[in-house]
Design a protein around this nucleic acid. Structure first.
Length: 278
DNA sequence: ACTGGCTCCTGAGGGC
DNA sequence: TGCCCTCAGGAGCCAG
């Protein structure tokens, strides 16, 4: 599933092939992804020049002259740049034909993703306006986190995935960062000390940076349809490892469902507050 | 102001 | 071999 590192890697991959190109034609091959693909957008897209490709949280943004495109990869989305005469494959829902003879295609089997044309400057768009800071930027600090978490009783695991607090930290990296910080996923967000936040914020940054580097080593060629998974999964300590032994203390990894999502943790390394112990 | 629950969708995986 | 059932999972949205 694409998380921030995968989206960043995708952004870097398509950027050289897309920046400065004109959109000669656009096509939708599905009525909707997460939201409807408005046919009226096809005319808006026509003849736009893509001035810039950038990322905000897990959104990929194509900045055009006025307005632009927001793309979210959801659970299963992939963006690829291919020669325009390459046959479409199943779940190719959106195609932008570029002036270079290449096409940008969004393929998304589960259709949890999004493709939206915005007349507004992209940062003004409602989906972006309320997003929290980027986890890898200086704005995301322990002091910021401590202040924001005041009055927040929700489990820290859920809070890390709460976009108004910080963007781009999905299930995998929230799970891994909590393990590295030895913090129990059910600990209320408001109860973390400054010391815990200092550690946790640092672990989030480290785990994301490491994943971006790993992804960057495998996804070099975005003109090639053969997308490979990143190597970062080899570095995971707890995510998807329920029942296996903790790499630090050999205690079996457990799983809890928190806010409808699987949360793996080591019951020995990540000590629970008394009343939360099962 | 917060929080929990619902929802979209398909492919993967287990059981038989 | 193949069919059916279950379920994961990002994040906006809404009700309580």
């Amino acid at each position: 599933m694409p998380e921030l590192p995968e989206v960043e890697t995708t952004c870097r991959g398509i950027r050289p092939h897309v920046t400065g190109m004109q959109i000669e034609a656009a096509a939708f091959h599905a009525p909707k992804l997460r939201w409807p693909l408005e046919p009226a957008w096809l005319d808006q897209l026509q003849d736009q020049t893509i001035n810039q490709v950038r990322r905000r949280g897990k959104y990929t943004l194509l900045e055009c002259g006025q307005g632009g495109v927001l793309i979210h990869l959801g659970m299963s989305g992939k963006l690829r740049v291919l020669p325009t005469d390459t046959p479409l494959v199943k779940h190719d829902h959106v195609e932008l034909v570029l002036s270079s003879g290449m096409s940008l295609r969004l393929n998304d089997p589960r259709r949890f993703g999004a493709f939206i044309w915005s007349d507004l400057a992209l940062d003004q768009h409602p989906l972006l306006a309320k997003l929290g800071p980027e986890p890898l930027e200086g704005e995301f600090t322990a002091d910021y986190a401590l202040a924001q978490a005041q009055g927040r009783k929700m489990p820290i695991k859920a809070y890390l995935m709460h976009n108004p607090f910080v963007v781009g930290v999905g299930n995998i990296y929230a799970t891994e960062a909590l393990f590295r910080s030895r913090i129990h996923p059910l600990q209320p967000a408001q109860s973390l000390t400054l010391t815990q936040w200092q550690d946790l914020v640092e672990q989030i940054k480290q785990v994301l940076r490491a994943a971006i580097e790993a992804g960057g080593t495998t996804l070099k060629d975005f003109t090639n349809s053969a997308g490979k998974p990143g190597y970062f999964q080899q570095t995971l300590n707890v995510y998807g490892k329920a029942g296996q032994d903790c790499s630090v203390c050999q205690t079996p990894i457990k799983t809890l469902i928190i806010a409808q999502r699987a949360s793996a943790f080591c019951p020995s390394c990540q000590r629970a507050p008394e009343h939360l112990t099962d």
